[in-house]
Amino acid sequence: MSVFKDAGHLFRFAGLFVLAFLVFLVVRHYVVPKSFGEYGHYRGAAMGEIAAHPAKFAGHDTCEACHSDVADKKSKGKHAHVNCEACHGALFQRLPNPEQPRPNLYKRFVALIIPPAPPDSPLLRHAEDPSSVKPEMPDTAVLCARCHTASAAKPKGFPQVAPADHSNGVPCETCHQPHNPAIDAGGAK
């Protein structure tokens, strides 16, 4: 008996351990997200949240639903497989974030420890409101040159020209209609 009496303080220490472990288990039960482990060692709900992000490129099907005339024209030419948004940009544009006032010292200190989430800016949706939200008309001098400027680095079979020699500053669309660029396809408007 006296062994237990003389080792009593050890049991107290062990008791602290057990207590801490029990508290840990209880806390763990409450803080681990519910969907954790649903599919693997991660929060199953995360996939749904990631999948719920809004898309900005709507895909050519969405454009073609209305712009069937352009789709028809494009399908007959060399740009048949170039998707609408490759040149026109994403159908949904994000507005630049509104100017934020500089946070006060306290907020900046807190932000050092808990980084704030960046504010989300609204999406402009041309497909929902075609008349008021319009994608910008691309500048052909930049747009065409991006792909078709001659460079030794580009694949040899790809059509490419040195813009200065080729057109001497005349805009591309004078001769080439972007949706069907071959000149005999009636480039000049």
Binding site: V3, K5, D6, A7, G8, H9, R12
Partner: peptide, 14 residues
């Protein structure tokens, strides 16, 4: 001390 003041030679030996 965790509330234990037992410092008998025996406990110290343990």
């Amino acid at each position: 001390t965790l509330g234990s003041t037992n410092i008998s030679p025996r406990s110290l030996a343990i």
